[in-house]
Nucleic acid binder design. Structure first.
Lengths: 125, 125
DNA sequence: CAGAATCCTACCTGATACTG
DNA sequence: CAGTATCAGGTAGGATTCTG
């Protein structure tokens, strides 16, 4: 996904690597759900991510599997059954994801507050 | 940027809000640089982000200004001089960014290791 | 210097149909 | 069930040129 992000010798390498791994549009969300819910099947993930398309979900899962973040377990059954879960390496993202989640709630409050303030400003005199 | 990410009543709200705020392709990187370098001018940011286009840099900065993450300080001079820095609210991202950076380095090691392992596998017999 | 404007492409979305 | 395939349409992002 990310390319052209190759600064040589820089301290930004870490962020860049993270962006390449989980910078996708849906990846943090999928990882967050797998982190909290444990193992999930494809259809369950679809239901938990109401607006994602099958194609997107498939591609995001495959990329993260490639990057060693998630494990794809195929049962040889009819009808097919496939389970997705975080790999051990994927689980090392838990603090990052938790931080992102926590900051998001702070950000929501912040935005509500600044909206309220600008409303006050506008009918102040 | 992100829309269609509106699950109602869910615990994913935090991640979703974070994704909307800093989910852009360049935002975490720009924020990381501003966090570590303090105040920077437009041209300096361009030089620190070798592959970003002016247009992208402008739009990302404007969006983050809108979201209250960064401060845009305009000097009324010729030639124009404009300084960007993190707002107080933007600075609350520091732990998230630091975590992302740290995880990125771990991920680089992980990927190198699994590459090495698969190389071993391939010429084992 | 810091950008605005334009154009262009690649990717994402949504719907639908098909397969093992 | 868990995909893959296809196509129309939109949006994010990239490249280039122009301006106060």
């Amino acid at each position: 996904m990310h390319d052209g992000l190759r600064e040589p010798n820089h301290r930004t390498q870490g962020i860049i690597a993270t962006l390449q791994a989980i910078g996708g549009k849906w990846k943090p969300l999928i990882l967050f759900i797998l982190l909290h819910d444990g193992t999930r099947r494809f259809g369950e993930l679809r239901r938990l991510l109401p607006h994602i398309t099958q194609g997107m979900l498939t591609s995001q899962l495959r990329e993260m599997e490639q990057d060693g973040l998630i494990v794809r377990l195929v049962y040889n059954e009819i009808p097919p059954k496939i389970e997705y879960s975080l790999s051990d390496h994927g689980k090392t993202l838990s603090s990052v994801l938790a931080d992102m989640c926590g900051w998001g709630f702070k950000h929501i409050e912040f935005m509500n507050q600044s909206k309220a303030e600008s409303k006050n400003d506008s009918h102040a005199e």
